[in-house]
Design a protein around this nucleic acid. Sequence first.
RNA 1: GCCCCCGUCGUCCAGCGGCCCAGGACAUCGGCCUUUCAAGCCGGCAACGCGGGUUCGAAUCCCGUCGGGGGUGCCA
Length: 490
Amino acid sequence: MAFLGGRGCFDGARARRYPRVTVTSPPVVRFAPSPTGYLHVGGAHSALANWMFARRHGGRFLLRIEDTDTERNRPDLLDGVLDMLRWLGLDWDGEPVHQSDCVGDHRAAADALLASGDAYWCDCSPEQVQARAKERGGPPGYDGHCRDRGLAEGAGPLRFRVPPGTTAWTDLVRGEVSFDNATIEDFVLLRSNGTPMFLLANAVDDAAMGVTHVIRGEDHVNGTPKYLLILRALGRTEPTAFAHMPLLVNESRKKLSKRRDDVSVASYRDEGFLPEAMVNYLSLLGWGPPDGVEVRPIAEIVDLYDLADVNPSPAFFDRKKLLHVNGEWIRGLALDDFLARARPFLPGDDAAAALAALGPLVQERVRLLSEVADMVDFLWMDEPPVDDAAWDKVMVRGKAAPEMLDASTAELTALEGWTADGISAAVERAAITAGFTKPDGSPQMAKAPAPVRVATTGRSVGPPLWESLAALGRDRTLARLAAARVRLAG
RNA sequence: GCCCCCGUCGUCCAGCGGCCCAGGACAUCGGCCUUUCAAGCCGGCAACGCGGGUUCGAAUCCCGUCGGGGGUGCCA
């Protein structure tokens, strides 16, 4: 059978949780997305596992586009997926294989199975199958009705004749998994219209592509015995290794769903998550580095990551921790790199210049690139928005706001030069004038600058004030202090 | 219903028979630092689902039980 190729190369060795994964010849793995237009974080998780495995063992990471039954083979939808893989840095080897180009192989495999007696034609409609199951009272599913009827190709589907016995494999992350074949119904290989079903196409394509290790989500465990049965019936003798990764779940421990969860990798990118952080965090779901150092380059993780160490239980996709990891990565960026990456999240050159003026001070205060704009908007906007809560708290209910604004205006007007240090000293003097003093007469700087900050930036939090005002300039600083004073009086 | 998988702090991991009255990280709480906010540092709270075994000794092995999830399409 020409379409069956590839070589097996899984060897168990060294007791660990399960045999540590060793590879004796270059492995071939694949990620098989459907062209849905977006990459799901769960998909990214298993794509990453495949990619890391290939890179770690010097193998090949292939892509196969499962586009057989999808509405249309729309290139734009595929691009959405490929773009995200590129963004994450998961580069694949060779050109992606389109499953739709392989239907000939699928048919050939079906023919072979029919010829060997491992498949047979059926003429039961789904309704009939269902009706009989209901009547039987037992489990739903096909009952083998047409097994021995010797039907010729007709209006019905081609079914696989599941043999008696058990089907088992040693899963790289789960250990021994076995199924009693009696619990597996005679599943459909070819639809009534002659098109191949996922299971057949999947198994045949993997064999044709020489896939040695199938690494995918746990939701595929149940399909594995069928996959194995098909390949065995087709005479493939090379063993395929399997690794079923833990599912990514939401707060209610349910598989992440497009409907109710944020699952699109693109949406995380658009929020300002760094691809390095994304991939770093994803690697931490189901696995942990032996030395406990969680935030680190993916290259290091590739060297440390072993499928035998993957925890098989479902993992909660924790946005809070992702944010933390992202913050670490942002702070670790070189300044120029940080500015460049933040640029797309800023509205224009003025904003970019504003960010550049306070670069490092902003960099260590954001966890998302999308947060930078709000931190420097007071620098490039003529009239930055005033946070009502901040105004109310500091200006209205806070103490001595008018006095502080007046004193600051006087000190800053008289200030020689316009530097952060000078501004700092000026505001300290203003604090004393305005009555913000500690028992020992020193200025109470924890509170005093608040009115100045709200007046000039519109917010109660932000980058350090002295540097902010230095960047703002004397004229604009004084103008805003005056405007705030007017608003306060009014 | 049937099949399969899973079960250590709220969460993600460590733990592979004694080093564990369980360790790290995130979150959370408190403190320090401090011009706000972050960052950083210090400290606190917090878990082996339950029941039986095996063993001198079990979070670690076995059985059961309970709980959770996944799969049960002529979708992929």
